[in-house]
Write a protein that binds this DNA or RNA. Structure first.
Length: 226
DNA sequence: GCATTAACCACAG
DNA sequence: CTGTGGTTAATGC
């Protein structure tokens, strides 16, 4: 197994930057780096969870099995922690994480992680900030889902992809139509139809999974009024 | 009533 | 896996 040296890592999180030499050594000894290919599972819902995971690079989707069907909770882009709520909040995972592109992740032993939280307040502070931002994001996502119609929700996600996830106007959708529907909370058919319609209106250009935003202003209007 | 929205089903590339 | 058409149920003038 590869020996890790977290102090040499150039992909440190904001939180980890505040660790001192000794703390970084503790982390190095209780942390494993793993590469995932697209579609590989990082962790699964309902299994015992004993790691906090830090994404160095790549992207994952968080999936939860609901009472009716599965739901995509959100897409997460490195650098970020995943599995913090699910590891600290309960002993089993409440959702699964699956890579949607090649991803490199650090698995950090939960007792080590807790130890660092107690040892270093600056570290804890950064973790809290990340969690709070994430919770605020969830609140907004929740109200969007509840109070917007499908076009608004779809536009919302497309804008999120282009501005937050990829920071480009042209990209490949990371999900197929079915999963995209699971993210937007609608049916596969509605996604198909609406993407075609936005294409007809020259608001986006869609070719399979390749998508290009042509009229971002209009898309934002749909997001805000939809 | 009538229009709109969106889900479900079926079927074809 | 996707796109489309038909049908249907719910909701709002």
């Amino acid at each position: 197994m590869k020996k890790l040296n977290c102090s040499m890592c150039i992909l440190k999180s904001e939180a980890t930057k505040s660790l001192n030499t000794g703390e970084l050594k503790i982390l190095s000894q209780n942390c494993v780096e793993v590469d995932f290919k697209k579609d590989e599972v990082l962790f699964k819902q309902n299994v015992l969870s004993s790691n906090v995971i830090y994404l160095q690079s790549g992207m994952v989707k968080l999936i939860i099995e609901g009472p009716q069907r599965k739901q995509i909770l959100k897409l997460k882009k490195a650098p970020c922690y995943i599995g913090l709520p699910t590891t600290m909040g309960d002993k089993i995972n409440h959702y699964s994480a699956v890579a949607i592109q090649a991803t490199r992740a650090c698995f950090i032993d939960i007792t080590t992680f807790k130890k660092l939280l107690r040892l270093n307040p600056d570290f804890s502070y950064e973790i809290i900030v990340e969690l709070c931002k994430s919770e605020l994001e969830q609140f907004h996502r929740c109200i969007n889902l509840l109070q917007k119609q499908v076009f608004g929700r779809l536009a919302n996600n497309l804008i999120y992809f282009t501005e937050e996830l990829y920071e480009m106007d042209e990209y490949d959708l990371p999900l197929n139509r079915n999963e995209f529907a699971d993210l937007v909370c609608t049916s596969r058919e509605s996604i198909s139809r609406m993407l075609s319609e936005l294409d007809e209106e020259k608001i986006i250009k869609i070719e399979g999974k390749r998508i290009k935003i042509l009229n971002k202003e209009m898309l934002k209007k749909i997001r805000d009024n939809g």
